[in-house]
């Protein structure tokens, strides 16, 4: 457990000292969100209806950005081999990486999503639902993304391949999260959608690190 926390702490320190990555993710998120009003037009009614979907798609794409380098540096300089020899199960390494990815990508996105959604004229009762769904949703994306990053480790042009692998698997997260927002917009209960989203997260929490760990061991061979 302490090894796990140490690993998360190490990744956090690394990303704090190279803050550019997190800032690039946030900038991408805002810029991509900014393109939608420019493309669709500034009509507040249309934008307000599309706002949760726009925020979600931008968050999904932004969360993919740092995955490319998630294991890359560790793989190249041999840190990954050492981690695998440290006694920590490979799945735990994947889980720690997912947690670090969420803390450095998901959490900042969560903070930035509020302002972006308000700028997109989201309805006042839609905002808390959107933010509440982003918490488990982005963590599920971090888990899936970590597994995907471990699977493409060592591949040629892994960065291009990664979205192709992760995006189809992220469909349920996107659907349950945005349908919660749609339900909130028309005054229907949000709870079932939110619970389904949590169920997806509960399902991915053991599955994704197991797959990621198996892929890490395969990559280190």
């Amino acid at each position: 457990m302490s090894l796990l926390l140490a690993l998360i702490g190490r990744d956090l320190r690394l990303s704090l000292r190279h803050g550019a990555d997190t800032i690039a993710v946030l900038l991408f998120f805002f810029l991509a969100g900014l393109l939608f009003p420019l493309a669709i037009g500034p009509n507040p009614e249309t934008l307000g209806r599309l706002a949760p979907g726009i925020v979600w798609v931008c968050a999904l794409l932004a969360a993919l950005l740092p995955l490319d380098r998630l294991f890359g540096a560790d793989f190249e300089d041999g840190t990954l081999d050492q981690l695998l020899l440290s006694g920590l199960p490979a799945a735990a390494i994947a889980l720690a990486k997912a947690a670090a990815h969420w803390l450095t990508t998901g959490l900042p996105l969560l903070l930035a999503a509020g302002p972006l959604a308000v700028m997109l004229r989201i309805s006042p009762n839609g905002l808390p639902v959107l933010l509440a769904c982003l918490v488990p949703g982005t963590f599920a994306l971090s888990l899936l993304g970590t597994a995907g990053a471990a699977i493409v480790l060592g591949a040629r042009r892994g960065g291009v391949l990664l979205p192709l692998l992760v995006l189809p698997l992220a469909v349920p997260v996107l659907i349950f999260a945005t349908s919660a927002s749609s339900a909130a917009a028309v005054g229907l209960p949000v709870r079932p959608h939110f619970l389904l989203l949590l169920a997806v997260l509960a399902f991915l929490t053991p599955l994704a690190p197991l797959a990621g760990g198996a892929a890490l061991r395969a990559a280190a061979e």
């Binding site: 349920p172 659907i175 349950f176 997806v200 994704a208």
Partner: peptide, 20 residues
Amino acid sequence: ILALVGVVNLPIIKFSVDWW
């Protein structure tokens, strides 16, 4: 590994798309 992750997720994707 990808195929196994995919096949486990396939029912969830199917269900979520139906729900959507």
